[in-house]
């Protein structure tokens, strides 16, 4: 039986064991898992941009601040408990560099900082992360173990 739930760009999904949550091809975007291991409940968000306030609106799940807020409220509805939540994240790479214009493209770094800030605000400890670099990542989160599997094309695989 295939229990893998795929999370698209600018989207999030929540679930319970035995589900696994997966998002494919993270570049400068960030995949954030927030989970309550004891109740085996968790969610995965595929975040594209740092903040809803500095942008021209649209879908709330594009942005770190509004997406995490929505995902947290869904996690509580499923039965997750605030004090037990933990987070892991991956992504935030810089996929391209234009000669002399690198600074314009640091959106991956800004995304990383925004997610860290939002987690801190919500009081959720970030216990592992694999961010930055210049390569894409496909990630899969196992709700049963709290393990985040990270696959790349030329940088191998790892579990955090």
């Amino acid at each position: 039986m295939n229990n893998t739930i795929i999370v698209g760009m600018a989207d999030y999904k929540v679930g319970k064991t035995p589900a696994k949550l997966m998002t494919v091809g993270l570049g400068s975007c960030i995949g954030v898992c927030i989970y309550d291991l004891q109740s085996q409940i968790g969610g995965l968000a595929h975040i594209m941009l740092p903040s809803s306030s500095e942008n021209s609106g649209g879908k709330e799940t594009k942005y770190a601040d509004t997406c995490l807020e929505l995902m947290l409220s869904d996690l509580y509805k499923l039965g997750a408990r605030a004090g037990r939540l933990k987070a892991k994240m991956a992504g935030g790479a810089q996929m391209f560099s234009f000669a002399g214009k690198a600074s314009l493209l640091k959106i991956g770094e800004r995304n990383t900082q925004a997610v860290e800030q939002e987690l801190q605000k919500a009081g959720i400890p970030l216990i592992a992360s694999d961010v930055g670099g210049t390569y894409g990542r496909t990630i899969c989160f196992d709700l049963a173990t709290g393990e985040l599997f990270i696959k790349t094309i030329n940088q191998g695989e790892k579990v955090i």
């Binding site: 600018a10 493209l105 094309i153």
Partner: peptide, 27 residues
């Protein structure tokens, strides 16, 4: 046109970087 940039990786990862490159993206 800008100078060209080259990427060799997962197509999804490169597309996401292209889409959000200007700091905004349409739904």
């Amino acid at each position: 046109i800008s100078v060209p940039a080259l990427g060799i990786d997962m197509i999804g990862a490169m597309i996401d970087a292209v889409l959000i490159e200007g700091g905004r993206v349409d739904d």
